[in-house]
Write a protein that binds this DNA or RNA. Structure first.
Lengths: 351, 351
DNA sequence: GTCAGCACTCTATGTTAATGAGTGCTAACA
DNA sequence: TGTTAGCACTCATTAACATAGAGTGCTGAC
C-alpha cells in the first residue's frame, strides 16, 4: 500500500501542510494552485489531493471542505518535507541572554531555559529536572545549629546542594557528631546516589554505637535527602499559550488540555516514553499514548552535562505545530543549556 | 438614599443571593415564593425585588429575566445576611490531615495549605510566602567544600535555612575562613534581616583585612542570600478550578483570568492592598482595583507565627462565590496553619 | 398591604432559505 | 496519457423569521 511519493505529490503535500500550519484552515486546491507556483491547475491539484487522501496523508473534515494533514501527513512532513528554520538574530539573542543570566542553582537554569522556549515557540514547555542517580556524594556533614537543631548538608559532584533540618530532643554531643561525620564521609563520599540504598545504610548504621533513636532519625534524614535529590520533578511553562490557537477556542478542549497538564505524573510518564537515543524527538498526534493529547504534538530534546544525558525539555502544542521553528529553537537552546550547565558545575575552565 | 432595610426585604435578598450562588441563574420571583417559605405571593416578592433593584442591591440582565445580586448586594450579604457555614467532618479532616503531613520546610507547609484550600473551596488560591524582615540571623557560616567551592549557610530564628554556593578562583585559607566566620557571626547574628542593609555590610567589610575581590564576592553572596529570604514570593493553586463555573465558560473570560493570574507582580500588588487589620477580608467585584478581576471576589486571611502576622492566603473566585464556606474554610485553615508553623519553628513544646 | 390576572418584553430555540467554498466527475484537448 | 475547463453536487455557515417560555410590571379587587 505504501508507495514512494512522486516529487510532485511531495511538493503539493508540503505546500498544503505549510499553508495549514500558517492558517489553521482546511486548504483548498485553488489556494495551492494560486499561491505556490507549481504551474498546475486547481483541477490537477484536486486529483493529486484525492490521491494523497487515499494514501492517508490528508483528511477531509467534510465533503465540501479543503484538506487538512493527518498525523501520517505531519510525520512525512517532519521526516522529509519541511525546510529547516533559521532562527532570527532576535530569537538567538533571546536564548543567549536567558542562558547568560547570573544563576546559582540548577533549577533556576532549568526554569529559565523552559521559560525562554515557551516564549520563543509560544507553546507549552515542560522540562524535567535532572536525574541525579549517577551523581556522587562529594560532601556530607551534620552541623549543629543549637541545642535541639542540626543541619544536614549534602553536596554532590554535580554541584547540587541540599540541606535538611534535623531536630533532636536531647542535645547532641559535639564529639559524637564529629565522629559521625567522619564515618559517614568515609562510607558515603564517592558513591553514586543510586548506590546508596537502604541496605547499605543499614550496614553503616550497624557500625555506629549510639542511641538507636537518634541514629534512626539521622539516617532517615539522610535517606530522605538523597531521595529528594534523586526524585524526578518537572516544570511547566506557558500553559496558557494554548489559548493562542483556534483549535483550543473550544472551552471543553482547553479544559481537557489544562487538566492533563496539571497531572505531573502523566507528564513524567510522557517524557519517560520518549525515545532517548535521538537528540530531538517528535511525537505527532496519536503517536503518544495519552488520548488527552491526541490532537497535540510533542517535540523533545535531551540536555546533558558533558556527554551524560541528564534530562529532557519538551514542547507541547497542537499537531498543527510549527515543527521547523520548534526544532531549531530546541536545538539551539539545548546547545546553550548544555554549555551553561557545564559552567555551572565545573566553572569557566570549560569555556 | 441608603435606608435601613426592613426585615422582609433582608429575607428576600438573602434568599435571592443564596439561590443565585447555588444555581448561577437569574432568580425569578416565583422561585423565591415557592422554595423559601416566606408566606408571600410571587407578586409581592416582585414588588420587593423592584425596590431592592432601586436600592442597588439587585440587577436585571434584561427585562424578562430574573434578578442577580449586584456587588453592593453581595456586600450586604457578606456583612449582614449570610449564615455561618459549618464545615463538615470530612472538610475538617482534610485540613487537619494536610497540616499534619511530615513537613520540613516553611514553603512546603505554605503550599500544602494553599492546596488544601483550593481543593476545599474549588476556587483559585494564592498564598504569599512570609516576609522575613523581622527574623533575626541565628547562624551564618562559610563552609569550605573543596579547593574552589565553599558553601554559605544561613539560618534564621524562624528556622529558614538558605545556602549559596560560593566559587573562588584561589583556594581560601582555612584560617581566614575561620576568622571570617567569627567576625560575621559576631556582627550579624541577632540582627533582623531588615537591619542588615548595604551600609552596615560596608562597615563590617572595612574591618576585615583581606583580598578585596574575594571579600566583595563573599559579601555579595551574603547580601543576595538575605534578599532572597526577604523577598516576597507567592504560590498559586487550583487556577483551573475556574473552569467549573459557568461565568467562565466563555473562552475570552477564561483567557483574561488566566493571563491575570500569571502576572505575579499584580497578584502581589493585590495582596498588598488588602486591609491587614482584620483577620478575614473580603473584596467583592469592583472593590478591587484590577479591572480583570471586576467579576471576581477575593477572600483573604492573615496567617502568623505567634502573634506576628507573616503572610496572607487568599481565595479568588467569581463574585457569585460561596462566601460563607470560603470564610469558614479559611478561618479553620489559618488556625491550623498557625499552629503548624509554631511547631515547625519552635518544636512541639508549644503544643 | 397583598395578590390574581394579564399584557408585554426579551431570550432562547428551531426552521428555513440563501450563500459560498470546495469537491468529484466528465469530456475535451495537447 | 496527463492536464484542465466546466459543471453539478455537497455541506457548513449565516441570516431571517417564527415560536415558546420565563419573568416582569401594572391594574384592580379584596
Amino acid at each position: 500500500m505504501r508507495v514512494e511519493l512522486g516529487e510532485r505529490k511531495r511538493k503539493i503535500l508540503q505546500a498544503i501542510i505549510d499553508d495549514y500550519i500558517d492558517c489553521a484552515e482546511p486548504v483548498g486546491s485553488r489556494k495551492i494552485a494560486k499561491k505556490h507556483e507549481l504551474g498546475l491547475s486547481s483541477a490537477t491539484i484536486r486529483n493529486e489531493m484525492a490521491d494523497l487522501e487515499d494514501m492517508g496523508y490528508l483528511e477531509q473534515p467534510h465533503t465540501s471542505a479543503g484538506r487538512i494533514p493527518s498525523d501520517l501527513g505531519y510525520r512525512l512532513y517532519v521526516d522529509q518535507l519541511m525546510e529547516k528554520y533559521q532562527l532570527t538574530v532576535a530569537e538567538i539573542n533571546r536564548i543567549k541572554l536567558a542562558m547568560e543570566l547570573k544563576m546559582r542553582e540548577l533549577n533556576q537554569v532549568i526554569q529559565e531555559a523552559s521559560y525562554a522556549i515557551s516564549k520563543l515557540t509560544q507553546y507549552t514547555t515542560i522540562i524535567s529536572t535532572p536525574k541525579m542517580g549517577k551523581s556522587t556524594i562529594k560532601y556530607l556533614r551534620i552541623i549543629p545549629i543549637d541545642q535541639f537543631n542540626s543541619l544536614l548538608v549534602l553536596v554532590t559532584d554535580t554541584g547540587v546542594v541540599k540541606n535538611y533540618k534535623i531536630k533532636t530532643y536531647n542535645e547532641l554531643d559535639s564529639d559524637f557528631i564529629e565522629r559521625l561525620n567522619i564515618i559517614l564521609n568515609n562510607k558515603l563520599t564517592g558513591l553514586t546516589l543510586e548506590q546508596i540504598n537502604s541496605q547499605r545504610m543499614q550496614e553503616i548504621k550497624k557500625e555506629i554505637v549510639c542511641d538507636e533513636e537518634i541514629l534512626t532519625s539521622i539516617f532517615g534524614h539522610i535517606s530522605d535527602c538523597i531521595n529528594d535529590i534523586n526524585s524526578a520533578d518537572l516544570y511547566l511553562e506557558g500553559t496558557t499559550n494554548i489559548f493562542n490557537y483556534p483549535e483550543y477556542n473550544d472551552i471543553e478542549k482547553a479544559k481537557e488540555f489544562f487538566s492533563f497538564v496539571e497531572q505531573k505524573d502523566k507528564l513524567i510518564k510522557l517524557l519517560n516514553k520518549v525515545n532517548g537515543s535521538k537528540k530531538i524527538n517528535v511525537l505527532i498526534g496519536r503517536e503518544n499514548e495519552f488520548s488527552e493529547l491526541r490532537e497535540c504534538s510533542i517535540v523533545t530534546s535531551t540536555y546533558s552535562i558533558g556527554n551524560k544525558v541528564i534530562g529532557l525539555i519538551g514542547v507541547i502544542g497542537p499537531t498543527r505545530m510549527r515543527y521547523a521553528k520548534t526544532i531549531s529553537s530546541l536545538e539551539y537552546l539545548t546547545d546553550n543549556l548544555n554549555r551553561t550547565l557545564l559552567k555551572l558545575f565545573y566553572g569557566d575552565k570549560y569555556d
